[in-house]
């Protein structure tokens, strides 16, 4: 009661500071509900692509491949949100910034490599399986 408002404010700030790490981590641990939601979504998102491929659902294999990759992308987001607890607020947004930067590099690496190398293949001298067997 005798404490001045300023001193009280400083004390509460100190208390807040010491527990800040704990609060931050507690928020990032997730809940039982969150883990179960992530798990059930993952099970469904894993089962569908396996069913598509093993059950020969579509006759068009390109369509199947596109579906499998899209479902994989969705499942990666589910894991990021429910298991890795990604959000824009943790660590002041730096984890999200690092993730976005990495994703840009990953996309450039993957798309760039596959694009360039597939074009390179087209411009190479044709080689049959027979030629390949005759290789030294």
């Amino acid at each position: 009661m005798s404490a001045t408002p300023a001193a009280h404010g400083a004390a509460s700030e100190e208390t807040h500071h010491s527990t800040h790490g704990g609060n931050d981590h507690a928020a990032s641990h997730g809940t039982m509900k969150g883990y179960m939601t992530g798990f059930l979504l993952s099970v469904v998102l894993t089962a569908i692509p396996f069913w598509l491929v093993m059950g020969h659902v579509f006759s068009d294999t390109h369509l199947t491949a596109v579906f499998v990759m899209v479902l994989a992308a969705v499942q990666i987001v589910v894991h990021m949100v429910y298991f890795l607890h990604m959000n824009t607020k943790s660590e002041g947004g730096w984890t999200m910034l690092a993730l976005i930067f990495t994703m840009i590099i990953v996309v450039i690496t993957l798309a760039g490599s596959i694009w360039v190398m597939s074009h390179l293949n087209t411009n190479m001298m044709p080689m049959t399986q027979h030629d390949m067997r005759e290789m030294p």
Partner: peptide
Amino acid sequence: GSTMLGFWIYLMSDCLIFAVLFATFGV
């Protein structure tokens, strides 16, 4: 809390290793 951010950046660098290996497999 800086450990968590540091470890996350390690994981992102690990992610790049896998990206390169995925690209190799893609090609």
